[in-house]
Every structure is written in C-alpha cells, then in structure tokens.
C-alpha cells in the first residue's frame, strides 16, 4: 500500500495503534455482553409469578427499533465512505442522520421500558426482568454514550476538518456504532424472537 491509497485514518502510526486498540476493546465488549446474555439465558424462565417475555413483548415496536438501528448502522457506513472521499459535508450529514436514528431508537426503547413497567414488569419483579433490563439497559446506555461521543466528534470535525486525527476518531466511533448494531441483532433474535416463540 502506498500512502495515498491508504485511508487517512491509517496514515500515522499512532492512529493505526488507536484503531487496533479499539478492536481489542470491542473484543472485551463481546465478552461483557456474553456474560449478560448468559445471565439472561439462565434466568429467563424464572418469572416469579410476574409476566414472561411473550406476555409483554410487542413484535411491531421491536421490529421498528431493529430497522432504525440497522439503518443507522448503514448511514454511519455511508458517513465513513464520504469521509474516505474527503467529503466533509457528506460525512457530517450522514453522521447527523445516524445520530437522529440513534435518538429515535432510544426514544422507542425508553417508551418500551415505560410500557413494561406499566404491565407490572420492573427490574425488581423477577429473575427474568432483572436480567432483561440489565442486558437491554447496558445496550441502551452504550447507545446513549455513542450519541454523546459522536456529537462531540462532529463539533471537532466542523472546527478542524477531516485530518488524520479527526478521521481516525470518527472511524473508531463508527466501529463502535456498528458493534452496537451487532449486539442488537443478538438481542432481537435471542431475547425478543426467542421470548415470543418459545
């Protein structure tokens, strides 16, 4: 690879190391979420007289959340594509679309939680709800953090433009965002679909 075919974010040794380090962090995140999934799978049938998943899950809402997050992962991919074409405006617009979709997802998830509490499923109701809210809450907290993080990076982008540093930071944030989508795919499949079908 000659230097002008290498994407900007890989052009200094420091940013290469940052990206590698972030992949290592994502490996640790996989393990973190696997422990939460393991707790959920062990506890999901312990409803202690409270509602089970199939009593409270609403397929339509969960599907909308899934499509919002899938689309936001796609738009953050488009943002990085624009970044690599040195298109600052495209990068900014697609990242803002990503953030808006992320905020829409959070809005739906918070409404979903409020709905569950009204149905009598709080985090203290049973082993099932405790594991459920911990897993979903950890994912939701990651999304919240991602929105704040990317918003701040966009301020930096507007001020400094696309440089080796800002591009590597935005690339890393996009990896984080795609990762949250991967986690959601597993939540959708093994919490919601499994809960509604089994």
């Amino acid at each position: 690879m000659t230097s002008h075919t290498t994407p900007l974010e890989y052009q200094s040794e420091q940013t290469q190391m940052n990206i590698l380090g972030f992949w290592v962090f994502l490996g640790a995140e996989i393990v973190l979420f696997s422990t939460l999934f393991a707790s959920y799978f062990v506890l999901e049938h312990n409803t202690a007289g409270g509602p089970a998943g199939q009593d409270i899950f609403i397929l339509k809402d969960v599907l909308i959340e899934t499509f919002i997050l899938l689309t936001s992962s796609f738009t953050s991919g488009l943002a990085i594509h624009s970044m690599r074409n040195h298109d600052k405006k495209g990068l900014l617009i697609w990242m803002i679309v990503t953030l808006l979709l992320g905020a829409g997802f959070l809005y739906m998830e918070i409404n979903e939680f409020i709905h569950y509490v009204h149905e009598g499923a709080t985090i203290q109701t049973s082993g099932f709800t405790a594991a459920f809210f911990t897993l979903l809450g950890t994912h939701g907290a990651h999304v919240t953090f991602g929105i704040i993080w990317i918003s701040l990076l966009l301020v930096q982008l507007v001020r400094r433009g696309i440089t080796v540093k800002t591009s590597s930071k935005l690339f890393i944030a996009s990896l984080y965002w795609h990762f949250l989508d991967v986690v959601w795919i597993f939540i959708f499949t093994f919490v919601y679909l499994k809960g509604m079908v089994m």
């Binding site: 992949w23 994502l26 490996g27 640790a28 996989i30 393990v31 979420f33 696997s34 422990t35 999934f37 393991a38 707790s39 799978f41 062990v42």
Partner: peptide
C-alpha cells in the same frame, strides 16, 4: 474477534 467469539460461546453455553 475469533478469540472473543469463542470466549463468548464458552461463557454462554458453559453458564
């Protein structure tokens, strides 16, 4: 990634 996925599978199925 492969290492992390193997760890995740061991944690989930092991538990």
């Amino acid at each position: 990634m492969v290492n992390s996925i193997i760890l995740a599978l061991i944690i989930v199925f092991g538990s």
